[in-house]
Amino acid sequence: MSGGHESGVVAPGSATGTALVIERPGAFRLTEHSPRPPGPGEALVRVRAVGICGSDREVYQGTRPSGYVRYPLTPGHEWSGVVEAVGSGVATSLVGRKVVGEGFRNCQVCERCREGETTLCAAAYEETGFTQPGAMAPTLTLPARLLHVLPDHVDLDCAALLEPAACAAAAALRGEVRPGDRVAVVGTGTLGLLALQLLAASSPAELLAVGRWPEQRARAEACRATAYIDAGHRQDVGGFDVVVEAAGAPDSARTAASLLRRGGRLVLTGIPAPGATGLDPTDLVVRRIDVRTVFGAPPAAWAHAVRAFSAGLIDPSPLITHRLPLPDFAQALDLVGSGSPAVGKVLLFP
């Protein structure tokens, strides 16, 4: 965002409204928000929309591993907004642009970062909305290098889903789908549905969605699945070249592996709870299954997701089922944790 462009400090406008702070597990409050002016290399973003996901429930309930959260905390790692101010060293042309932003605050200097694998950074874990202030506030100040600029015409409500879309893009890139491949996605939550849209752009011969409820069929088909089956009724279904596991259920990795042909590629994205059923190493070796994993989204995956969204290849609108004001945070958490097939992505508006 810097270098070769005029840069300098742009004073932020006055911000009104409240921020949400989780003081400790099980306790949150709404507090008056004061925007933090951007320092060198930073940008201040006026937040439009924030998505809620399972990890936000973990933060509130206190079940997220201790090394991956820091209280008190303003959550919010799935967000969209408009740049309102920039610090020194950042191009002033960024002001007024619609943006989304990467969450991982990587060190940029370790070997993994230099390879572009920023989610594997060797430095201590830092991420927006978990250890650093998130977007459940009127404004968010963060390093400008993490921002991805969007075209002016895009819908910012839909853009708030680009964080999970970037994770889905990481899975799609790891799967290396070729035109004509038979592809399946296990899981029809936000990640799975976005993965379907991205994988459809690779022109597979078949794109199967595997879910838990018949009610999810229409949503999966709207995301370009060519077929849908219930996870419990998958007899005689298999022979797929690539299977993406996006459910994180205790048995979803095994389900995904069972759908593959010999020599197929398995991409695991979900993080199941302890005690999940493991993969059979004998089966993996005998069938020579190529197992690949995804943890977050590196910059290349973000760029892929943003390009696909900007080109209209991703349409998150069918996934959004609830829009609530920020004070309804508790209701939003209840919706996300309900397990109801009628609940898709829940958005909050600071």
Rank of each mutant, 00 (worst) to 15 (best):
A91N: 13
S93E: 14
C121Y: 06
V210T: 05
P25F: 07
G54W: 04
R182S: 14
G26E: 12
E221V: 14
G175V: 10
R174V: 00
G344A: 10
E84A: 11
G129Q: 10
V336Y: 02
H304N: 08
R287N: 15
Q197A: 11
A225P: 09
D290I: 13
V286H: 09
V291W: 06
D328I: 01
I320C: 07
A231H: 09
T63W: 03
V100C: 04
V99N: 01
C167I: 15
G96M: 06
G116V: 11
G175H: 04
G239V: 11
A276D: 08
V59Y: 05
P72T: 12
L156D: 09
Q331H: 15
L266S: 11
T190V: 15
D283M: 14
L147R: 02
V50A: 08
R57H: 10
G192N: 12
P318Q: 05
G339W: 08
D241Q: 03
T190L: 06
E102S: 06
D181T: 10
V82M: 00
L333A: 09
S88A: 14
T63F: 03
V90G: 00
Q61A: 15
L150A: 08
G89W: 00
S80A: 12
T293C: 13
K98S: 10
H148F: 01
A332W: 11
G238I: 08
D230S: 13
A220T: 13
V10K: 00
Q132L: 14
T190K: 04
S55Q: 05
R288C: 12
L147H: 00
A247T: 08
P299W: 01
V59A: 13
P75K: 08
L266V: 11
A184F: 06
V99T: 05
G312C: 04
S203Q: 11
L94Y: 03
W79R: 02
I52Y: 01
P327R: 03
L162V: 04
P65V: 11
T131M: 07
G337R: 00
L324V: 14
R174L: 05
A330D: 15
A172Q: 08
V99A: 04
Q197N: 09
C113Q: 05
I229N: 00
H77P: 07
G41T: 07
A256Q: 07
E176V: 02
A49L: 06
R323E: 11
H77V: 07
L142N: 00
M136L: 13
R70D: 14
V47D: 03
A201H: 08
D251W: 07
Q108W: 10
P75L: 07
E221F: 04
A301V: 03
